[in-house]
Amino acid sequence: MTDPRKIEVFSPETLSAAVQVLAEVGSEAHILAGGTDLMVALEKGFWQPKGFVLNISRIEPELRYIRMEDGDVCMGALTTFADIARSDLLNTEAPSLVAAAREIGAQQIQNRATIGGNIMNASPAGDSMPPLLALDARVVLKSNEGPRTLPLFSFYPAYRETVSQPSELLTEVRIARRDSPTQDYFRKVAPRRAQAISKVILAARAWNVEETEEGPRIGSIRLGVGSVAPTPLRLFETERLLEKAVLTPSLMGAAGHMLETEISPIDDMRSTAEYRRQVCRRLLDDFLSNLLLES
């Protein structure tokens, strides 16, 4: 374990100061927001900071908000999961994200843990990413040279890696506001009903579901999964198969097959690959069956 007293901590008061530090010595910085992942990793010896810690929690005035902007729902990176759970706007616009927020850790963790921290920690088991993927979320990265916005589905190139550069700070998450009614789904499968690490997560959103004589026809669908691949994953191929097609039992079967080709679960001390694969598929079935019932 690294001696915590020997870790140099820099706590800027403004976003521009933080970004300036990253521009100069970003490759030596470990960014700390709520600390709910890092402090545990430090104690367990998984995290051995070589450089210094850039504590951004004091930039809260600039980075903790939930608001509408240009037709998007925007969340500052320091928005806590307690904020998300309580937000009327998100309860309307992003019920699956709210459901995820309510299941993260205990209340104390929800008060500390931030959406930005969860995204940047890049765990394949992170609770907020599957719903964010299903909501077509984009992330805003800021550096000295200005901001860039990219879709979350392109953010995770490999296990525990992001495309963010050392000079960049994640500042915002954006979700497009709905323009028609949606059907949303979130289910986290975990070894217990609270304070647990996920074994499988599926978040989904469908909209423009039309009634046809053969059954409901899904206009658009987004599927985000967790704990079944090295990274949080959006299931593009499965979505493609389901979009614009009439939902029949055989299409559901084909979608399940496609889902299995897209995910790559493993055996570990938390669960088995077989369980994760089958349950992930059954969760999709569960969501699609609900669509059938509701139509």
Partner: peptide, 27 residues
């Protein structure tokens, strides 16, 4: 229904409270 000691090569692999799962009040 919850508590499984994953013993492998003579040692408990899940030696933390996030991976050795005891029930909470919600369970």
């Amino acid at each position: 229904g919850f508590e499984k000691v994953v013993m492998h090569d003579g040692t408990m692999r899940n030696h933390d409270v996030s991976n050795y799962v005891i029930p909470t009040a919600a369970d």
